[in-house]
Design a protein around this nucleic acid. Sequence first.
DNA 1: GGGCTGAATGTTGTCGATAACAAGGAGTCG
DNA 2: CGACTCCTTGTTATCGACAACATTCAGCCC
Lengths: 354, 354
Amino acid sequence: MDADAASTPVEIAEPEPATTEARSAKAATIYDVARVAGVSHQTVSRFIKGYQGIRPETRDRVVAALEQLDYRPNLTARSLRKGRSHRIAALTHEIDQVGPSKIVQGASVAAREAGYLLDIVTLDMSDRLSIQEALELVQQLDVAGVLALASTDEMAAAFAAADFRVPALIRAEEDDAQHGHPTELSTLGIPALMSHLVALGHERFLHIAGPSTWSAARNRSHAYDMAISAHGLVSTGVVSGDWSAKSGYDAVAALPPDFTATAVVASNDQMALGAMLALRDRGLRVPDDVSVTGVDDIPEAAYFSPPLTTLRIDFDAQGRSAVAELLGGARAHAPAIGSELIIRASTGPVHSAR
Amino acid sequence: MDADAASTPVEIAEPEPATTEARSAKAATIYDVARVAGVSHQTVSRFIKGYQGIRPETRDRVVAALEQLDYRPNLTARSLRKGRSHRIAALTHEIDQVGPSKIVQGASVAAREAGYLLDIVTLDMSDRLSIQEALELVQQLDVAGVLALASTDEMAAAFAAADFRVPALIRAEEDDAQHGHPTELSTLGIPALMSHLVALGHERFLHIAGPSTWSAARNRSHAYDMAISAHGLVSTGVVSGDWSAKSGYDAVAALPPDFTATAVVASNDQMALGAMLALRDRGLRVPDDVSVTGVDDIPEAAYFSPPLTTLRIDFDAQGRSAVAELLGGARAHAPAIGSELIIRASTGPVHSAR
DNA sequence: GGGCTGAATGTTGTCGATAACAAGGAGTCG
DNA sequence: CGACTCCTTGTTATCGACAACATTCAGCCC
């Protein structure tokens, strides 16, 4: 009956969003389906849940009605009644970097496989206010969980202070420095990376670190320090960048003219890229005069000039495991996701002193 | 009364998700608040909506109760009642590329400003099955709108076939080829890019296109063709890549030894990067022997060796405008978002014939 | 054949919020 | 001083689904 109204050709009063031939009517509910099928709404509900004890004849009527009305369950109503939602809030750093965005992607896929959707909230992970706003928002969202896909001190503090009523997980590797042994994935590979450089004859190093408020940056730097002392090497300096290629460039450009490092170890590929260009601009060749390494192995790294030696991080797996841990309560500390040393042309043997 | 049951200290049977000191209790509802304040739930609701006609004394009690219980509205219930949700589904291509991820970021911010959240669904935009699944999922989600943040033929087809009950927008520039004049942002800059190369004396070009099922790729290629004929130039070939650096490398590596192009115009920065490395591997110098250009201006482009001449695309604005258009019904065709020619060292004057 | 059992289906209540309507109380006026 | 406002607050219905309980009806037993 009501359906008739919808099928009469009325002219659209409100401007039809020209974007797409949207809605054909309002969505059908189980009550609509029940009416069409001549059964009670509960029978429909039972069918949808997969309940077996429905007489074939009844079932057929329901199926037909379902089909006819193109019924789609209303997840909002279901969530309300069931008291659990199908969304996970993912707080992520502004994703102009490959790492974070791949993590998001992995998390998104894993979430979907588990029947959840990812609500993305991008923010500046080092801006306290921005974090505060985001958490405020997230808390009214009745999400099934909250995931912080990167860890800064500010974020960790905000998480600790927040009173989540749902599981919350910050993908924060604990600080290695506090625990004495590496827990973080990327860290695990740094020793291998350093050994590779040592094997090439390098003894004097420069480290371009990430922002010190990022736990990942701290861990990598810590691993660098450990390797330096373990091999009895010389660290000619540690400069902090902000993960960007520009900061890598600036770090090297600011070095004194007579710096003596023969290997530059950057905490990510972008900074390594910037460093390589700065070296070149200073008239130094990579790897003949100076070797450079990164971390992440972004897809472009293999095509830098020269191709970059780096540690491959499986971001996708990180995103997936974060979701799994959050949902599964799989508190078993994040399954160690290995990193892999990828040797390319940006590292080479030490030549005679410059 | 029932509340008493909840307040008795029972031991938790189910394992407490160790991930975080989660929930302090179940969230308070307006009924809880009303009980504490000694008013009806409707009064609480009124206060929350900002209704003014509440006696100051009553108001104070409500405020106190709200505070005490740390009340947060349940958006799910609100959505159910109001019949509209606060989420937008964003379908995006696997975001290992900078462009898409920045678009997502812009969209996310814009959505949040408008009181919405972005539900991210990542998928392979050229995999029909994957698209189908995603749309299926999205349709039960009762989102306020559906946004496709990239446009492929497959996606466009799926969108056309889908029977959305909510506004849906595919960030699909129409094909310029069909409309005769450029509608897409990036396209607008290609003429400028080509003119720049022409001014440097280039006459023989190679184009590395994106996948032909992507409308953006087609538009850029079309603009390239137009420029070629407009200036009376020679296109020595058009090769299709898949947006990746690898495909750019392969495209150039596969050229015959005697190719004569002096300028390579790639449809994005990654492919340009790959092309530059391949040229170098063939013993050619950039830009002395061959000039190379990209499109996008990813943050790394300025630090390639050599820094890349490219078209800067404002992805952030694209994401924002997509959301605005979707929500506002602002059908006014996407506000032209300009692109800007960024000239760097990867382009230079043509030297004497090789 | 009355009463029992169990299978199939229907009725009513609930989740947490908003909306519509109802009602109690103070102030005004004839 | 009773009727009539208006202002404030309370009561009931509703969104769409799921859950608990209630009912109908057929088959079976003694």
